[in-house]
Nucleic acid binder design. Structure first.
Length: 494
RNA sequence: GGCCUGUUCGUCUAGGGGUCAGGACAGUAGGUUUUCAACCUACCAACAGGAGUUCGAUUCUCCUACAGGCUACCA
């Protein structure tokens, strides 16, 4: 028998990080067992579901690199649920409940106040046919409830946790068809899992208690039981449920922030499962042969951005310059550092390429790139750090800057003062060597040579290697900036 | 309140009756570099608590504590 898995998100928001992991685990399980994966949109709650969310979820799933073999939408299957429900009604396994929401609410409150668990009191279970007919004639709205057997042990073997059992006594007669005719979650799931011949239900631990109800439904519908497996949830830093105030929680938000799909998938899998031998960096496809449902961890995991950042950095560094340029350019545009039409400009693309080359080791997220590059798209230095001031104050620095300017000017002249000359890293390196050469007699070298140069063209005392910096800025802009710094030194009497 | 599930370094995870309880992130200290980052090396750091079973328990059982989930005409 071919294993059949399903991933069943409800489109009431974007693809959440936890939901994405459910998708990943099901994908991993299905593909590693050469089974099928079904994507089922659980949109029976008309009020909370939206097409926009569905689109966004599907887009994010694809972006993460998942695929599926079949697709269903529960809202298009309402008739199927209703048919199953009326069958159960005929078989006397369910009954109509005419109770108003207010009564139910009060019942719950009073039970809770009395310190008991809230459970439907079965008032409508014993209604005789005359009463039912009367209410139906009056048009009283009704829901359909499932008759839960008394005192019965419901047991199943969880593929991750082992045996789990419940007493049916703790489950009230639950609703399977709401008064608007739509199925409740538990019912739609069971009808679908049966109809779609799902063999493995792999989902979050928040569904463990639902499993008891669902087993009852599977049995009453005469359906065979699938295997169940419940993995733990992802928690926020303080151990609470991952919520919005923790920062990004949806995949689209992570994407916007500049996380790579490969990194996210890698992190999500490492979060609750280890492929062994200390291997931590891998793609979902890499570990298919090592994946086993029973290996998934039982205990909940706290979401750790630091580790995600580390993984993301690794994947960023694995990209080629061209790939990174394409990945990073949108951030420069959205930060208004460059314009959309600049992407046609070869000079600018070349500058970005150089920037990517200089900064790729510094990036944790792609979004960082625009922060690093911002200054390099300005004509002038925006400001000098106090460390830069300290450096520029030194007597030796003045000599360095003079030599630097001289070398820059003569170098530029050799290119006929062409403002568009492409000055590469190699040439930058030679240029710096030349300055060192000129200052040899003054014995200025090392820190005292490099720091003033750096400060004079960036206003800062740290950043990528100097030849790279010079190459990104170009000769003309370097000259401008050194002049600006000279002016700055004079004005501030450094 | 009831029911269900879980608990190994700060975090993720490996292990599993006898281990120096392993790895990774973070942190700290060195190395490298003009500097930042990256990279390399080292260090720091854990079996929630209590009983029981056993020659021996972090591992098995029970209890407690704590955490999470469910207890909807949400999914």
């Amino acid at each position: 028998m071919i294993p059949r898995f399903r991933f069943a998100p409800s489109p009431t928001g974007g693809l959440h990080i936890g939901t994405a992991r459910t998708a990943l685990l099901n994908w991993l399980a299905a593909r590693s067992m050469e089974g099928k994966l079904i994507l089922r949109i659980e949109d029976t709650d008309v009020k909370r579901s939206s097409v926009t969310c569905e689109k966004s979820i599907i887009e994010d799933l694809k972006w993460l690199g998942f695929d599926w073999d079949e697709f269903y939408r529960q809202s298009e299957r309402i008739k199927i649920y209703q048919k199953s429900a009326s069958q159960l009604l005929d078989e006397n396994k369910t009954y109509r409940c005419f109770c108003t929401p207010e009564r139910l609410e009060n019942l719950k409150k009073s039970q809770y106040a009395a310190g008991r668990m809230s459970k439907y009191d079965r008032r409508c279970r014993e209604l005789d046919s005359v009463e039912i007919e009367k209410k139906l004639k009056e048009g009283v709205p009704f829901a359909i409830r499932f008759k839960v057997e008394d005192e019965r042990e419901i047991t199943f073997r969880d593929l991750i946790r082992g045996e789990i059992s419940f007493s049916s006594g703790v489950i009230g007669d639950f609703i399977i068809i709401k008064s608007d005719g739509t199925p409740s979650y538990n019912f739609a799931v069971v009808v679908d899992d049966g109809d779609m011949k799902i063999t493995h239900v792999l989902r979050g631990e928040d569904h463990i208690t639902n499993t008891a109800r669902q087993i009852l439904l599977f049995e009453s519908l005469g359906l065979g039981l699938p295997s169940f497996a419940h993995f733990s949830m992802i928690l926020g830093r303080d151990g609470s449920k991952l919520s919005k105030r923790e920062g990004a929680t949806t995949i689209s938000q992570f994407r916007k922030d500049g996380y790579l799909a490969e990194a996210l998938v890698n992190y999500l899998s490492i979060l609750s499962w280890a492929p062994g031998e200390g291997q931590e960096i891998f793609s979902a496809g890499d570990i298919l042969d090592k994946f086993k449902i029973s290996y998934i961890s039982r205990s909940p995991a706290i979401f750790d951005v630091d580790k995600l950042n580390w993984i993301n950095g690794i994947y960023i560094r694995r990209k080629t310059a061209k790939e990174l340029e394409e990945l990073c350019t949108p951030y420069l545009i959205s930060e208004k550092i460059i314009d959309q039409k600049d992407t046609e400009n070869e000079k600018i693309i070349s500058k970005i390429l150089k920037g990517v080359n200089a900064f790729k080791d510094n990036l944790k997220v792609l979004g960082d790139f625009s922060v690093y590059m911002k200054d390099f798209f300005e004509e002038k230095i925006a400001g000098y750090s106090t460390e830069a001031d300290e450096v520029l104050k030194l007597d030796t620095s003045k000599a360095v800057l003079k030599a630097f300017l001289k070398v820059l000017t003569s170098e530029w002249k050799s290119f006929d003062n062409n403002p568009d000359i492409d000055f590469n890293e190699e040439q930058g390196k030679k240029l710096i060597d030349k300055i060192g050469e000129n200052l040899k007699t003054l014995k200025i070298k090392g820190k005292f040579l490099y720091m003033p140069i750096r400060a004079s063209i960036t206003g800062k005392t740290h950043g990528p290697e100097l030849p790279k910096v010079i190459s990104i800025l170009g000769l003309k802009n370097c000259i401008q900036r050194v002049n600006q710094t000279l002016e700055y030194i004079k004005n501030n009497k450094l």
